[in-house]
Amino acid sequence: MNDYLEKQQENMLYLLEQLVNIDSGTSDKAGVDRIGALMATLYRALGLKVNVFPEADYGNHLVVRASQQHKPTILIITHMDTVFEKGTAKLRPFLVKDNRAYGPGVIDMKASLVAVYFAMKALKEIKSKAFYDVEILLTSDEEIGSVTSKSLIESHAKDKKFALVMEPARKNGAIVSARRGKAHYTLEVFGKAAHSGIEPEKGRSAIEELAHKIIQLHDITDEEKGIHVNVGIIEGGSSVNTISDHASAEIDVRFRKQEQADQIEQKIEDITSHADIEGTKVRLEGEINRPPMEKTAKTESLLRIIRKVGDELHIKITDTETGGGSDASFTAAIGIPTVDGLGPVGGNAHREDEYLEIDSFLPRTILLAEVIKQLHRKINQTKKPQS
């Protein structure tokens, strides 16, 4: 299998170039669907069945598997959308320079789309039964919190033994064994406008009230426990000499353990349940939109298999926790052994200088294919004989 994939390196880069040069920002439904149509054609050519789950506002989701007759036990999760605006691919097309590939979405996660496809292609080439034990999700809205794909992910994960999530490996090559949970809130404050020079006593400043709330919200942060609250965007006021009658804030919350979620929610609700400035009113909207991906004994068992495969391929596998969110949180939360960051190595995702380390492209594809084989073998070894 390794020899086969080594001969596919040029084809891998060619497919990656095609994908990167298609705009597929989450809001660009047509672009995301172009990615989906291309990948669907490739998978169908391998003899796999592609089910399309249509969406009205975002790209369609794809579920790829051998056939309805097979019941795959390994779930692989990828996403087709990026954070970049339409037209970015034309401004910054795919580029290879100094053993790095650049372009919008090159590492998050178009290189992973290529890696998964060629891993499956290799498994079929060697006639591995593991080829039939895989189900692949290609979703269209991961970058905005998987608003339409969450239920699809959960429904397809519930009968699986393992979930492999193809976000990129960290810059140092580490894979991801834990992610913090995430919540997003919008806080609005309503006051009373007045001229700040002529009749300030008649006004009630929404901005002043918001300032009190920001300090209190930031005080929830506890770095030692992995809790972080950040007011990242604030708006308010109409002119410098007008006491503001409206102000708002966007709040990002991260936390390490699910048990912390209720405590954090209660603290935020307590803070926003009343106004500190008389005559102002406060309104809070939002919720926790990603549970944490906690490192469990099941995770460690899966990591041992991946490390063993890595050792055999002379790839040192380390793991880490990250504060960023991904679809791995959904599969981990329902108890499926999950590992993330199994994509190629790269960095600077969501930035103009986003890159793929080309030297990692083939080894990480081989790693994925071998991990699939080993998981398939383990599943079949632990199946109880039927009486």
Rank of each mutant, 00 (worst) to 15 (best):
Q8W: 10
E10N: 13
E10L: 08
L15P: 08
Q18R: 09
G25W: 06
R34H: 01
A37D: 12
M39S: 10
A45W: 00
A45M: 03
G47V: 04
L48I: 01
E55I: 07
D57S: 11
Y58A: 09
Q69D: 12
T73E: 11
T73N: 06
I76Y: 11
T82W: 10
V83P: 07
K86H: 12
K97H: 07
R100N: 13
M109Q: 12
K110R: 12
S112W: 13
V116Q: 12
K124S: 00
K124C: 08
S128C: 05
S128L: 07
D133P: 06
I136L: 14
I136N: 02
L137E: 07
V147K: 15
D159H: 02
A163E: 08
M166V: 11
R170A: 14
G173T: 03
A178Y: 04
K182W: 00
Y185D: 03
F190W: 04
A193R: 14
H195R: 04
K213W: 11
Q216E: 14
Q216F: 03
I220S: 02
D222L: 06
N230A: 09
I233F: 01
G236T: 01
T242E: 00
D245R: 13
V253D: 04
D262I: 11
I264Y: 05
T272I: 09
E278W: 02
G279C: 03
E287S: 14
N289D: 04
N289Y: 11
M293F: 03
K295P: 01
I305N: 10
I315M: 03
E321F: 08
T322N: 08
T322R: 07
S329P: 07
T338R: 09
V345R: 05
R351Y: 13
D353G: 00
E357H: 02
I358G: 09
F361M: 05
T365M: 02
L368R: 12
I372C: 13
